[in-house]
């Protein structure tokens, strides 16, 4: 008998708890009630970076389906060439590219650089997207592969097959928007050049670090650094360093950049940068991007 009483008491307590809970959550304040009714959603981060480019290299950003981006970039000569070369402005390397979103996750692009007369093509695929709420994902990850074809003859080579002119770059771009101001990115990178000169290696591994800091509503400071994990045979080549200002005006993204790299193609700036940034071998340049 006493056993039954005990279980009954439990039942009553349980019901009482429900009733109490029920009347407590039946909010008087209608807005509070709606907040309680709101189901948790997956909140994907917006605008980890503003464009597909950091300085020279790619960001995790891909174009959305059917978006077309046109980018035109210049890198002038070295600033320390002095007044005779108008601080590098006399010599310019130009790259332009068309980059298109096949789906929200897959973007492909083709470009042409005047430096070494390179045609390049790339594909990047968004693997993970940083999110909070119902699904928590701490980082965004994009896979990136590019191919560069040099059409300018290399005088160091006697005769060149087509395959000698080709180089490949594969990257994993891992980014996190830390807060509304700061976004960081890491770029493990592998570059393969089919044919190289005597002081170069065919394969090279690098680890890139990049960051964006917003300094105004539409202005940010971008920077990137590619640390080469495997070294070349000579110390002619340097790590690529870039810093720039990013200005965004609805649909346009404009970069003013300072970098020790002449090339704007991955195999070029990651493996063939020969400027010493801290010795003034700095190329001023800009990227202008327009999304249609």
């Amino acid at each position: 008998m006493s056993h039954i009483n005990a279980s009954m008491k439990k039942t009553i307590l349980f019901i009482a708890a429900i009733v109490l809970g029920h009347s407590l959550s039946a909010q008087d304040d209608l807005l509070g009630m709606l907040s309680d009714e709101r189901e948790e959603t997956i909140d994907y981060v917006e605008a980890t970076f503003k464009g597909q480019r950091m300085i020279n290299g790619h960001t995790v950003v891909t174009r959305k389906a059917k978006e077309l981006e046109f980018i035109i970039s210049h890198r002038f000569g070295r600033i320390n060439t002095g007044i005779n070369e108008l601080f590098g402005l006399d010599g310019a390397n130009i790259r332009f590219s068309f980059e298109y979103g096949i789906s929200d996750f897959l973007t492909v692009g083709v470009g042409r650089s005047s430096f070494e007369k390179i045609y390049d093509g790339f594909a990047k695929y968004q693997i993970l997207r940083q999110s909070s709420g119902k699904k928590v994902m701490p980082v965004s990850i994009t896979g990136f592969s590019s191919m560069a074809i040099r059409t300018l003859d290399n005088p160091a080579f006697q005769n060149e097959e087509f395959s000698d002119r080709v180089a490949y770059t594969h990257q994993l771009l891992i980014a996190r928007k830390m807060n509304e101001t700061v976004s960081l990115q890491f770029m493990p990178t592998y570059v393969h050049r089919n044919r190289v000169m005597g002081n170069q290696e065919n394969d090279l591994l690098a680890f890139g670090v990049a960051g964006r800091v917003k300094v105004g509503k539409r202005v940010a400071i971008n920077s990137e650094y590619y640390y080469r994990l495997t070294s070349e045979l000579t110390d002619l080549y340097k790590d690529s360093i870039g810093i720039g200002v990013e200005i965004e005006t609805g649909g346009h993204v404009f970069h003013l950049t300072f970098t020790n790299s002449r090339s704007m193609v991955e195999k070029g700036f990651i493996t063939e940068t020969d400027g010493d940034f801290f010795n003034g071998d700095i190329h001023f340049g800009f990227n202008l991007s327009r999304v249609f």
Binding site: I12, I15, A16, H22
Partner: peptide
């Protein structure tokens, strides 16, 4: 009795 009261309260709130 308590149970009945609880049920009544439950009905009232709904």
């Amino acid at each position: 009795k308590l149970l009945n009261l609880s049920m009544a309260m439950l009905l009232a709130t709904s």
